[in-house]
Design a protein around this nucleic acid. Structure first.
Lengths: 186, 186
DNA sequence: CGCGCGATTGAGTAATTTCAAATCTAGTGG
DNA sequence: CCACTAGATTTGAAATTACTCAATCGCGCG
């Protein structure tokens, strides 16, 4: 597991053994079972999570009980209710296991400590945030400009492995359509 | 103008006069007229822009000539086709003046230089990227979970000043509906 | 006064949702 | 090996929502 985190970090910044030890001192490993919650609505968000193995979904449940999936997180992705995490307020979203999942947890204090102590890590997070924000804008773009058929095709093309691991119901919820409509495509 | 940029930076990080001089050495001031383009589709993106005064729109024009507005940028906002800017590839979006606009331009080299020379600036950009990414996720959230009426109401509530400055046609394009549908609301 | 542009209104059409029913699938126990 | 069940998926049909295209309205400006 540690090797995987290190490889992930080193895709962006090279680290000495000592530096990586500092990182390890700030994260802790946890395992969750399918359907377990890492974050629940209305509760405080202690950590951001790095997914080592498994699959998570970030979900909003509206007043009428409908689920809206904002994103999935699979191996090598960071996920949390980042708004709640950074502002230390109650979560509006929940983060739940689609499969059994192993993660590294990083608290906000540890995040700040790492950024302060290791400028390299700050650069790493800057790059992650930058490309995270670009990816989010691509999703907005796709929601604004394409119909469901195209959106589904794009997803299939971009993340074929992910689509395999999801139920149609979850896919529909992610794409922003009813499962019946998704079922009627192509 | 310089004072405004400094105040903007100092909302997040305190700067000495010397540090701010370093920043000034890396940006240049420009003014554009209403309807002028800062970025055009298919061209290289030299800069990210800090809006001092005026109003910009970030637009995608699809094959059938329809305009989709991804975002607006008013005073104190940073804007660009960030995907194209960071990867130094051709723009897929265009950035155009809704009003006469004054900006500071920051090239990618200068951005990297500032991050390297002034750790504070890196912290500034990390925070901007972080909250930019959170804001983008809020927009995805709103596109997935709310109908047009609610989306319009939220926008009115959140940015009343912005709505004043936009035509209904642009608002509709930003909200992802036809102008006729927007016109029929409440 | 008349032109031009943005906004609104109307009517028909297309896409999507909703709710209900039918079908399929994987896992369980006899 | 087969029947049974629970859950997911698909299908059907009506209702709703939004879009399109065309016509009209309203207003500022020369």
């Amino acid at each position: 597991m540690q090797q995987q985190l290190r490889a992930h970090l080193e895709k962006i910044v090279a680290l000495t053994d000592e530096e990586f030890d500092v990182v390890l001192a700030h994260v802790r490993e946890r395992r969750y079972k399918k359907r377990e919650f890492l974050i629940q609505e209305d509760q405080m968000v202690s950590d951001a999570y790095f997914v080592v193995s498994g699959l998570l979904k970030l979900v909003y449940t509206d007043d009428s009980g409908r689920q809206h999936i904002l994103s999935f997180a699979m191996e090598d992705w960071w996920e949390s209710d980042f708004r709640a995490f950074y502002t230390q307020t109650a979560a509006t979203l929940s983060l739940q296991c689609v499969e059994d999942t192993a993660v590294f947890c990083l608290s906000l204090e540890s995040y700040h400590a790492l950024c302060a102590d290791l400028p390299k890590l700050q650069r790493f997070f800057l790059q992650k945030a930058t490309f995270g924000s670009i990816a989010a804008q691509q999703r907005i773009f796709s929601l604004l400009t394409t119909n469901i058929q195209e959106r589904y095709d794009q997803l299939l093309q971009q993340y074929p492995a992910l689509v395999q691991r999801l139920s149609k119901t979850m896919l529909a919820s992610y794409l922003g359509v009813s499962r019946e409509t998704l079922s009627r495509l192509s």
